[in-house]
Write a protein that binds this DNA or RNA. Structure first.
Length: 822
RNA sequence: GGGGCGGUGGCGAAAUGGCAGACGCAGCGGACUUAAAAUCCGCCGGAGGAAUACUCCGUGUGGGUUCGACUCCCACCCGCCCUACCA
């Protein structure tokens, strides 16, 4: 049929050049069209693009192209999240300056991204390690500081002894609490660190009413934020120090028979008696040596030491011992608990082990009395309060917080007596943003003996990374090796001062990249307000679900914070989100360099061409599902595109034209347009490709038979090219031109369908008896209810399965089936 | 322990509560070819059956709702991922 085969290398090179020359993908403000800001998560420039990048980006690109053909003015930018650990570790390994290494990678990856045939507007590219970018990351840090959202404090942080750096909570992985990068078990270390007050927005972050995000992401964020309703209760030591605790069960307060402090609790030294000092110090040392896995694994027997000190239970004046134990974490609540062994498993185990007293204060409904000695485990169920003075007999239900009568009564009691109050506690912690690393944006602060902590004035931004610093980790911040960097003068008093030598967490840079894309060269502010007014917020975000609890919380927090500064006028950065699944390695495991199962697309792209690889990636799995990589099926999409090439170039004549053949072809054509529209709208790329294949099959058969009209064939081919264009942009552009249409196919309108033409004339009616298929027959699609039922009862097979019984009920499901019930 | 996602042919998968397996891959048989590749035609969940007649079984397991369940409900098993002594 065709003389020349499709040469993907030639065609792709040709159109890439033409697209560049003609600025086909330049995206500018156009008030005559509705805007659509399509955003896909930007990559780390840590090497080459792997198949996962293609899997994430080419369907996103197809969606953006689809929106453009549907009349939207689409912004679809790309950039590089170029700061942070992955880039730096790789640079260290290759013994080359992180900047040179990063930019070399960016060069390569940008080419690979272009070869993918994406419609990215490269004039909007933003690179987070570029001084003109991080100037504004630093500016935002200052803004957060000025608005009381950034503070510095001494803090025990997760520390990787191998990478020599602190880690964010999110960078500590796995059951054994290991370093995300190198797998080394994490230890604790105390350092002075900068934090952002993410907790201030904990409540608002729980409100998802303004966003159309996948349910799993919302649930994961909700769990991550971890809201608990309860009470803060102030206990007092015998020395008179106040020790507040958080509890979700203030109704068990009368059963608090001892207190437990975290070994790192600041009051430990104060409450410890001289006799116990040695034991306490030893225990603290031992706890500090343990990694969190050892401390936090649930099956591990409880350990702890008595401090010798006592506190007073504020509700009943009981003198209760104060212990320290590593099952109490400094990082949650107040780092101290009231222990109610009768009604908490952990406290029960601890009390039994160390012979501490157990006082039940909840009587289970079905019991007359509850005896401590007979308890084999803590009782966590419902019942009524006992041994609780004025609150005795209050009902205890399973409800949370004030919904529970006993909790409500206890809170009222606390507040009346001024010993505590209702509180909500969150698992969410403030965002630690200090990094003892070279490859990040320097934190723009100086420390002056006279003036204290002073921000760098705006006109002196950016604080540039020094070139003369060591960048390999030494345990100290690398910038401490550069006196020319840290020795400075105080912006306030002009006296000698020292710069902050830590750098910003890369997640800060990626919290606002969607804003920098608007105007990557703009220097009057972080983004051009004119661009922002038109494009923001992001209409459709796409990316992996693995970012559910870090990036996607950070960027929401960031946007809420800058909204409160008046920098933007919306709350949510991304209105809609779609999560694609992950392409796993061929072994079914997550791809990683350490596992050696990373798949490069380069060979495939060379052999099959970008269009085929794109089409295959969209076909090979449900997009939100992903799965283990294999390319066994790539021949399918390859044959599909070869066939498209052949049918679109065929000289077609209708040898024996028949109206019904024409009608059949047109019906399938319009059905395909409808299906493609619905599927691309809903990210169902795999069934979209299947629909193209069906249309291909129909067109091939029609060309064979030569019965459909030339007009119907032209319509079939042209609309096929249009609906395939977002998926396979090169081959369709070439064929569009070969068929004599104007440049470019990607600027055409999405084809519309006619329901009348798409409608089926006849259907296969399924005939069931008692829900089992017994016969089927071709009937007109618009068959009436009665006619369908009659036809069903007339069927021999149906009659034979009725065994002479009288139908009790006959159900007709229009267009589908008749079910005869006996 | 908590949470999320999933379990359908040899494989990837499809299916507003309505014909389970669309669309592909691989495989098998045939055509073309000196041969292979490519291409084309046919078959392709299991069992019985000469059969494109028909029948039975079949979407992790067991129940339930329904005229009808891959789909909804309850209980459980398995796999993957996240989280975890969260007071």
């Amino acid at each position: 049929m065709s003389e020349s085969k499709y040469n993907h290398a030639e065609v792709e090179a040709k159109w890439q050049e033409k697209w560049n020359e003609t600025n086909l993908y330049k995206q500018v403000i156009d008030h005559s069209k509705p805007k659509h800001y399509a955003l896909t998560m930007l990559p780390y420039p840590s090497g080459d693009l792997h198949i996962g990048h293609w899997y994430a980006m080419s369907p996103s690109d197809a969606r953006a192209r689809f929106m453009r053909m549907n009349g939207y003015n689409v912004l679809f930018p790309m950039g590089f999240d170029a700061f942070g650990l992955p880039a730096e570790n790789a640079a260290i390994k290759h013994n080359i300056n992180p900047r040179k290494w990063t930019y070399a990678n960016i060069e390569r990856m940008r080419k690979q991204l272009q070869s993918m045939g994406t419609m990215f507007d490269w004039e909007r590219e933003a690179i987070s390690c570029d001084p003109k970018y991080y100037k504004w990351s630093q500016w935002f840090f200052k803004k957060l500081y000025e608005h009381g959202l950034a503070y510095r404090k001494m803090s025990a942080v997760d520390f990787c002894p191998s990478c020599n750096t602190t880690l964010a909570r999110e960078q500590v992985w796995g059951d054994d609490r290991h370093c995300e990068r190198c797998g080394t078990p994490v230890i604790k270390k105390n350092l002075e660190q900068w934090f952002f007050k993410t907790t201030k927005y904990a409540e608002e972050l729980l409100d998802f009413s303004q966003i159309d995000w996948p349910e799993p992401v919302k649930v994961m964020q909700k769990n991550w934020i971890g809201r608990s309703e309860g009470a803060e209760v102030v206990f007092r030591t015998e020395q008179g120090d106040e020790i507040p605790v958080f509890t979700t069960r203030p109704d068990t307060l009368w059963g608090a028979t001892f207190m437990v402090l975290s070994p790192e609790h600041p009051f430990v030294e104060k409450v410890t008696t001289p006799e116990q000092a040695t034991a306490v110090a030893e225990y603290q040392e031992q706890a500090a040596r343990l990694t969190d896995i050892d401390r936090e694994s649930e099956g591990r027997p409880k350990t702890g030491v008595f401090t010798g000190g006592y506190a007073v239970n504020p509700v009943n004046g009981e003198r209760i011992p104060i212990w320290i134990a590593d099952y109490v974490l400094m990082s949650y609540g107040f780092g101290a608990i009231m222990a109610v062994p009768a009604h908490d498993e952990r406290d029960f185990e601890f009390a039994r082990k160390f012979g501490l007293s157990i006082v039940p204060v909840i009587l289970p409904e079905e019991m007359e009395s509850i005896e401590t000695d007979e308890m084999e485990t803590a009782y966590v169920g419902l019942g009524k309060m006992i041994n609780s003075g004025p609150l005795d007999d209050t009902a205890v239900t399973n409800d949370k917080g004030r919904q529970n009568p006993s909790v409500a009564a206890a809170i009222d009691f606390l507040e009346e007596h001024d010993i505590g109050q209702e509180t909500i506690n969150y698992k969410l912690r403030d965002w630690l943003i200090s990094r003892q690393r070279y490859w990040g944006a320097p934190i723009p602060m100086v420390y002056c003996d006279n003036c204290g902590t002073v921000p760098i004035p705006d006109e002196e931004l950016p604080v540039l990374l020094p070139e003369d610093s060591e960048f390999a980790p030494t345990g100290e911040s690398p910038l401490k090796t550069s006196p020319s960097f840290y020795e400075t003068t105080c912006p306030s008093c002009q006296g000698k001062a020292i710069r902050e030598t830590d750098t910003l967490d890369g997640f800060l840079c990626s919290s606002w990249y969607q804003y920098r894309y608007l105007s990557p060269d703009y220097d009057e502010g972080p983004f051009d307000p004119t661009e922002a007014a038109y494009w923001l917020p992001v209409d459709q975000y796409t990316g992996g679900i693995e970012h559910a609890t870090m990036h996607l919380i950070y960027t929401r927090f960031f946007t809420m914070a800058i909204r409160d500064m008046g920098l933007v006028n919306f709350t949510e950065p991304m209105t809609a989100l779609f999560n694609q699944g992950m392409v796993l390695g061929p072994d079914g495991e997550k791809m990683s360099k350490s596992r050696g199962n990373v798949v490069s697309p380069d060979n495939l792209v060379e052999q099959y061409g970008a269009d085929t690889v794109r089409t295959y990636l969209m076909f090979f799995a449900r997009w939100e599902q992903g799965g283990p990589w294999n390319y066994d099926g790539i021949k399918g999409p390859q044959r599909l595109l070869f066939d498209v090439w052949d049918v679109a170039r065929a000289e077609y004549t209708a040898v024996s034209e028949s109206p019904s053949a024409t009608r059949d072809l047109r019906r399938k054509t319009h059905q395909t347009i409808r299906k493609m529209t619905q599927d691309l709208e809903s990210f169902a790329f795999n069934t979209a490709v299947a629909a193209i294949m069906e249309q291909r099959n129909v067109i091939k058969a029609a060309q064979e038979k030569q019965e459909a009209s030339v007009e119907a064939m032209d319509e079939a081919i042209d609309s096929l090219l249009l609906v395939v264009a977002p998926i396979a942009p090169y081959i369709t552009e070439e064929l569009w031109a070969l068929r004599g249409h104007g440049y470019s196919i990607h600027q055409q309108s999405w084809p519309s369908w006619d329901e009348e033409i798409a409608r089926e004339e006849s259907i296969t009616l399924i005939l069931q008896v008692n829900g089992k298929v017994r016969d089927r027959m071709e009937v007109p699609a618009d068959i009436a209810d009665e006619a369908a039922k009659e036809a069903a009862l007339a069927s021999e097979n149906v009659q034979s399965h009725l065994n002479g019984k009288t139908p009790r009920k006959v159900i007709y499901v229009p267009g589908r089936l008749v079910n005869v019930v006996v």
